[in-house]
């Protein structure tokens, strides 16, 4: 296995790469590590948008490759403004760095989760209502079973009564025939 060590010129972070079997996840671990170890340059953290607008303006004052700084009075004012703004730099940095982006993303995710929770609450209410219906249905079916059992018992009783009556009738018929014979004699 051919293994080479690639050194990036400034940070001298050693990135181990197996060129025969490039593994992006492994390289990315090292890239992330290197990125975490080297903080972003301070000039950028002040106002990231400045870099872009500087480009738009043809690389004026604050751009990396821009022209010389404004001289004299303007320079003094700029210095004082920077000094006054110094306590706010951490806050500005917070909004300028990708942290702000991550906060926005987290905020968005939280919002989404909130919506899902609301939706689940709504579902929960529906489920509660369904549960009440199920209880009622259960009672109803129980009552139906009880009534059916009662009817079945009554049906059996009536059948027995009918059988007795049938037997009585048969006995009376036989008696009638016997009496008829006696009368005819």
């Amino acid at each position: 296995m051919e293994r080479q060590e690639q050194k990036s010129p400034e940070t001298l972070h050693a990135v181990e790469i197996d060129y025969q079997h490039v593994d992006v996840s492994r390289i990315m671990e090292q890239v992330k590590k290197a990125a975490a170890e080297r903080p972003p340059a301070p000039s950028r953290s002040e106002t990231p948008q400045n870099d872009v607008t500087a480009g738009q303006a043809g690389g004026a004052a604050s751009g990396p490759g821009g022209g010389g700084p404004p001289a004299g009075f303007k320079e003094k004012i700029k210095g004082k403004v920077l000094k006054l703004m110094a306590p706010f730099f951490p806050v500005i940095r917070l909004f300028a760095l990708p942290l702000h982006e991550e906060l926005n993303l987290t905020n968005k995710n939280l919002h989404e989760t909130n919506r899902r929770i609301d939706f689940l609450y709504q579902r929960l209410e529906d489920l509660d209502q369904s549960m009440e219906y199920i209880k009622l249905l259960h009672n109803l079916s129980h009552n139906i079973v009880v009534e059916l059992t009662k009817l079945s018992i009554e049906h059996d009783g009536l059948k027995t009564k009918a059988r007795i009556l049938q037997k009585d009738l048969e006995f009376l018929e036989k008696r009638e025939k016997t009496l008829e014979k006696h009368v005819v004699k």
Binding site: S8, V31, A34
Partner: peptide, 25 residues
């Protein structure tokens, strides 16, 4: 295994630098 990715500027810088500095990669 055909590309690198970034989540922030630091990763963009390191990944791009790696790709530029290492033609075999």
């Amino acid at each position: 295994n055909g590309g690198l990715y970034y989540e922030n500027y630091g990763e963009f810088r390191e990944a791009l630098r790696l790709l530029l500095a290492s033609p075999p990669l």
